[in-house]
């Protein structure tokens, strides 16, 4: 479904990712793991069209999407829920969700809204509240809900657990598992290794702009190298 081949991208002509390749198959949940600053967010930004692709190719459902604008990529059903949530603080929860279907899934807006309120009942209690006044966990739910409003084929979640309490992280991962169980492909980009490996079937470990390890989540969990790579021990 998503194919990244030899991706080189960065900021201001300086490459951060140096020839990265990865795949996500239909209905699959994969995890991309790595410490701060290894290029996880840069990878997401390149896939969703925010960053310029210097070389390599990104294909979605067989077609090259590198070079398309973010709205064009959204229109194809590749939805990126960004790090730091990037919700609209000056607008109500309902308006935030409605804008999720600005380009895609507009016809099913009412039905999808209901669906999102059943997944995230907390958002239903806050429909008319400004999104900026929500707690961190609620804002993350809103960001994911906004992404789901576009009826994604592939959902990229960039550090959904960032800044949340362990209890909330638990709750959030359970919700992500529930969304994924409905057949949606998810690319989970995380620092939270243990929980991500429980959720994903496969995982990539990113280090210094390249993939250091990859494999089945179950195998990686038991791999002593992971601890070493990840924690730099």
């Amino acid at each position: 479904m998503l194919e990244v081949r030899g991706l080189v991208t960065g900021y201001g002509g300086v490459p951060i990712l140096r020839g990265l390749s990865l795949d996500v198959a239909e209905g699959e949940v994969i995890a991309v793991l790595g410490a701060n600053g290894v290029g996880k967010t840069t990878l997401n930004r390149a896939i969703s069209g925010l960053n310029h692709v210097m070389s390599g190719v990104i294909r979605f459902e067989g077609e090259a999407i590198s070079g398309l604008s973010p709205p064009e990529i959204v229109a194809r059903g590749l939805i990126h829920v960004p790090e730091g949530r990037k919700i609209f603080p000056n607008m109500s929860v309902r308006e935030n969700l409605e804008l999720g279907s600005y380009r895609r899934g507009k016809g099913n807006r009412t039905r999808n809204l209901e669906r999102i309120f059943t997944i995230f009942p907390r958002l239903l209690e806050r429909t008319d509240q400004f999104a900026g006044t929500l707690s961190g966990g609620e804002q993350q739910m809103l960001a994911i809900g906004r992404g789901l409003m576009a009826e994604p084929k592939l959902l990229i979640l960039d550090e959904p657990s960032l800044g949340l309490s362990p209890l909330l992280v638990e709750e959030l991962f359970a919700l992500i598992a529930r969304i994924a169980s409905e057949g949606l492909a998810v690319m989970l980009v995380e620092q939270n290794v243990v929980q991500s490996l429980e959720l994903a079937s496969r995982a990539y470990v990113l280090e210094h702009g390249a993939i250091a390890m990859q494999g089945l989540a179950a195998d990686l969990k038991r791999d002593p190298e992971l601890e070493k790579t990840y924690l730099g021990l």
């Binding site: 069209g49 973010p70 709205p71 959204v74 919700i87 603080p89």
Partner: peptide
């Protein structure tokens, strides 16, 4: 208020 979030919403 949020250019990046808007672009990623299509």
């Amino acid at each position: 208020k949020e250019r990046t979030g808007a672009a990623l919403s299509g």
